[in-house]
Amino acid sequence: MDDRNVILEVRDISKRFGGLRALDTVSVAIRRNSVHGIIGPNGAGKTTLFNLITGMLLPDSGQFEIEGKPIKKVRPHQLVSIGVSRTFQNIRLFKGMSVLENVMIGQHVHTPTAVFSIMINGRKSRSAENAAREEALAALGFVGMARNVDQNVDSLSYGNQRLVEFARALAAKPRILLLDEPAAGMNPTEKQHLLRLINSLQQKDYTVVLIEHDMKVVMNVCSTVSVLDHGKKLAEGRPEDIRRHPEVIRAYLGKSDRGHA
């Protein structure tokens, strides 16, 4: 693989929780402008990998490189400036806030916090606020939620909450977008919509890493797939190869050979 084409390199990452090896010397190279799927049974270590990349957990060993630069001891909030943003498996929107406000938080690092100007309602603060609002509206427009901006996020359907979280992550203007089970809980129509969104992101020069259980989603959008099982990387390759990979089938279906994927 051409090294210059790798935007995020995960190198020999290990993480233990007590006696449990959540990740065991896992290496993954994510190519620029690709949609990279991470799949594996429950408890394989997929979300742990995301938590490690975003600095929410610290690895026991190994390191990450973004565009060839190692990132070490980066606090989670500094990752957005480096160009990484994420969504969560169990949707973590800011409850009691409107859709627009939620997405505007995504703009946090891109708008100045002019304390004095805020206090006197100065021009600087107003223009920053307007810019943040415009960006947030654009992100909401992109995911197709432009009509719900003033609604409270608590009142949205599950699928729409996922879309708002997606928009919030986009508003952070990442180069690398980490999506943790973006299609979970969505109905087939919503899934189709999501697939189109991810495809168009790829055309817009984003790199997307997604954890997904739904094989249909993975097969449809991913250019590369890595399979994790019990903290180890089992296989990696194009989706159509992965689907036929004997180890992968065994990991997913157990040792019995009654295969119905």
Partner: peptide, 16 residues
């Protein structure tokens, strides 16, 4: 308000 509702998510959005 975001920090109050969900520290982890706020942090992931770049809030110190």
């Amino acid at each position: 308000r975001a920090v109050c509702e969900d520290e982890l998510a706020a942090e992931a959005m770049g809030v110190n």
